[in-house]
């Protein structure tokens, strides 16, 4: 165990307490509590407009909450940035941007490189290794807009890997990707989990929840249920979250 792991003993990689977020006068999340378990994969699920992405963004400090706290290993997330990797929704990016696949992955090393540090051969090698892990090693020089949706998502995952974080937050990683990409991504995420990392993903496809995830967090503006899949992912909790229109 590294000193970092020892320090983390008993601390939740990501804990949310009484989180309330509003856009203008419209409350999106109200009094949400969430706890994650180290070395587990958690799915955040809920209907459209339930505040799943907002919860993720508030956890990352991208959206400012009205009240409540988010902590990572017992500290404010702003002090644990290097240990938290974020894979945003694909739609958030300008795909015509003049940037190559390898440049996107290098963005994951922004804090290592600093403002003026040169990108050296070892940084390129690290980025290339991350592309290999997601099966995109042959695309390093492509402009990102030339990739398919699934390939773009894998590049985003490679960027998160390049950061060598301990907690991975993903916003709908399987939205609009092909089956091959979905299984490639899930293999990488399971690999991270098996290496003791914590993974939290906003997820839509209820049918794959038991196969992919260890834990679920059900939300619809307020927290509905939380726990291991076999305990918290039940017809009753789904009914409470989705309001009786769901069949699993």
């Amino acid at each position: 165990m590294s000193p970092r792991d020892l320090n983390d003993a008993g601390l939740s990689p990501l804990a949310v307490r009484g989180l309330t977020v509003a856009y203008g006068a419209q409350p999106v999340l109200q009094g949400v509590d969430m706890t994650t378990v180290p070395g587990a994969m958690t799915a955040i699920i809920g209907p459209n407009g339930a505040g799943k992405s907002t919860l993720l963004k508030a956890c990352l400090g991208v959206v400012k909450p009205l009240s409540g706290q988010v902590s990572a290993w017992g500290q404010p997330t702003s002090r644990q940035r290097d240990r938290i990797a974020y894979v945003p929704q694909r739609a958030s990016v300008d795909w015509d941007f003049p940037t190559r696949v390898i440049d996107v992955v290098l963005m994951g090393m922004y804090r290592q490189l600093g403002l003026l540090g040169r990108v050296r051969a070892r940084h390129f090698k690290q980025a290339q290794d991350c592309l290999t892990r997601v099966g995109m090693q042959d695309f390093a020089d492509r402009q990102i807009g030339q990739l398919s949706g699934g390939q773009q998502q894998r590049v985003f995952l490679a960027r998160a890997l390049a950061q060598e974080a301990d907690l991975y937050l993903l916003d709908e990683p399987f939205a609009g990707v092909d089956a091959a990409t979905e299984s490639a991504i899930i293999a990488v995420l399971h690999g991270l989990r098996d290496a003791g990392k914590t993974v939290v993903a906003v997820h839509h496809d209820l049918s794959t929840v038991p196969a992919y995830f260890d834990r679920v967090f059900l939300i619809n503006r307020t927290a509905q249920a939380e726990g291991p899949v076999d305990v918290a992912f039940t017809p009753e909790t789904l009914q409470a979250t989705y309001g009786g229109r769901v069949h699993v």
């Binding site: 963004k57 990352l60 400090g61 991208v62 702003s78 940035r81 938290i84 974020y86 945003p88 958030s92 990016v93 300008d94 941007f97 940037t99 996107v104 963005m107 922004y110 804090r111």
Partner: peptide, 15 residues
């Protein structure tokens, strides 16, 4: 560049 490419991601990285 990071802000222009994806402002949300840039904010998460502490920019």
């Amino acid at each position: 560049l990071m802000t222009a490419f994806d402002a949300g991601y840039a904010r998460q990285r502490g920019i």
